[in-house]
């Protein structure tokens, strides 16, 4: 299974109700110590305010494993995210505000709450890039989608 298979797949609730599509896949990268404490360790950029250029937030971490945390499910399809709705970036007005409005209702489900990934009967079976269909487990949690 690839991340690309999951993206844009339809998501159903435990009762079969359509909840939306997978708009992104959330991962947790294990951050490891730099052997020599190299540049861009991240901490020195924390003081950059919310209105600082995005590049000031750019981090470069030495990483270890990458764990699959969950899926971001959006009710209105992927569209173009630009990431605004998952950060607290406010400018340039009004683009973040409009993108956020379009993606209201996007939530995070933990991968543990995904009950099955199966072939989508609604998809054209002859299509090579047919997306699977995801069903969530009963009692799944809708977590906030923000990246924090």
């Amino acid at each position: 299974m690839n991340v690309g298979d999951l993206l844009d797949a339809r998501v159903l609730g435990p009762d079969g109700a359509a909840l939306g599509v997978v708009v992104d896949v959330r991962l947790a990268l294990e951050v490891v110590d730099e052997p020599e404490g190299g540049p861009g360790a991240g901490e020195d950029r924390e003081e950059a305010g919310h209105d600082a250029p995005l590049s000031a937030h750019a981090r470069r971490d030495a990483v270890g494993g990458a764990r699959l945390v969950g899926l971001l499910v959006g009710p209105r399809g992927a569209g173009s995210f630009h990431g605004y709705e998952r950060t607290d970036v406010r400018s340039p007005w009004p683009i973040p505000q409009l993108v956020r409005r379009r993606h209201r209702g996007t939530f995070l489900v933990r991968w543990e709450d995904v009950a099955s990934v199966e072939a989508d009967p609604a998809a054209d079976p002859s299509a090579d890039d047919a997306k699977p269909r995801l069903r969530l487990a009963p009692g799944y949690d809708e977590l906030p989608a923000g990246l924090g």
Partner: peptide, 18 residues
Amino acid sequence: MTSDARERIVDARLHLLG
């Protein structure tokens, strides 16, 4: 942050793909 100091949370489409 939603993560502890040892993990960095990223979204595949936003931070990795492409």
